[in-house]
Design a protein around this nucleic acid. Sequence first.
DNA 1: TAGATTTGCGTAACCAGTTACGTTTATTAT
DNA 2: ATAATAAACGTAACTGGTTACGCAAATCTA
Lengths: 161, 161
Amino acid sequence: MSEDFLIEMGYAGLTGRLKRLSDAFIYQTRDFYREHESDIEPNWHMIFMLLQKNEKMTVTEIADALQLSHPAIVKLINKMKKRGYVDAEIDSQDNRKYQLMLSQKAKQKLPVLQDYWTAGEKALEELLGFNTRLLEEIQKLEDRMAEADFRTRMDKLLVNE
Amino acid sequence: MSEDFLIEMGYAGLTGRLKRLSDAFIYQTRDFYREHESDIEPNWHMIFMLLQKNEKMTVTEIADALQLSHPAIVKLINKMKKRGYVDAEIDSQDNRKYQLMLSQKAKQKLPVLQDYWTAGEKALEELLGFNTRLLEEIQKLEDRMAEADFRTRMDKLLVNE
DNA sequence: TAGATTTGCGTAACCAGTTACGTTTATTAT
DNA sequence: ATAATAAACGTAACTGGTTACGCAAATCTA
């Protein structure tokens, strides 16, 4: 008997394995930051990158770019604000919007963070065996999900309805 | 500019994409069950499969087989008990242990659930393009994580310490 | 230009996992 | 036989996402 029942389950175990992997990356990244006395959190990386590229963005724009729900972004940004990494100013054209940007503190910390992220990328390249096959297969999966998602396909394939 | 910033991020976006995918599978599976008036939940599948194979198992044995923490299993099993899908009896040899097994209700419902799971597997096969490349690449990633995990590799690869 | 609709964002409640800690029972060592 | 240690499992607090709902501001429409 295989040690790992999810592997033994074949196709049916895949979704559980994705969850396990995703969790492992999140928890280990968080531990890494804590170990290195950093008060930043795993998924801030993508916000930093976005705000380096775009200077100013609203909650909705960030949610669209990352394809997450807007409450997810609100929570993220609130924490980043509280720790002084993000500044906000009300949009001069539209009073519903806040324009978000990296704070001075964030910009000062960037070189250190950049070292962490570089280490993370290298670690990931190692874990992928220095090729992009997994990335490509993930991409195909995402593309097919965009055509017709899991739920839709399950419904269509269900026999005894 | 790509619509999806995580894709644009390359390697660095992979972990976020795994999270998104994993969440998508979980939420869509939950919706599917609800739509079909089923009171079961996404990850019960793996418990059902395990308890069909092994008849009786303890919390710790299940946690080991699925490589999840034992509190995760406790929560899962409590819900399954509450809805009458799992029965428990105290181990005759060791009073700390509960032997868990599928209830009569669970066994009766199996044929219907089996239809759902078959639809799920077929949907997954479609999404993977009827080949096992993604599965193989995931396996390699898991193997490399077992050799040395993400955190360990990041630490080793960090330059300016 | 007033009324209806849409948009942006905040909040609440939920979900599925984690770590940390505590209690009871079993096992090991002296 | 007893004391120390280990194991099983329960609970609490946290994390990072979701959906559902509400409100205020902006935009569209008649």
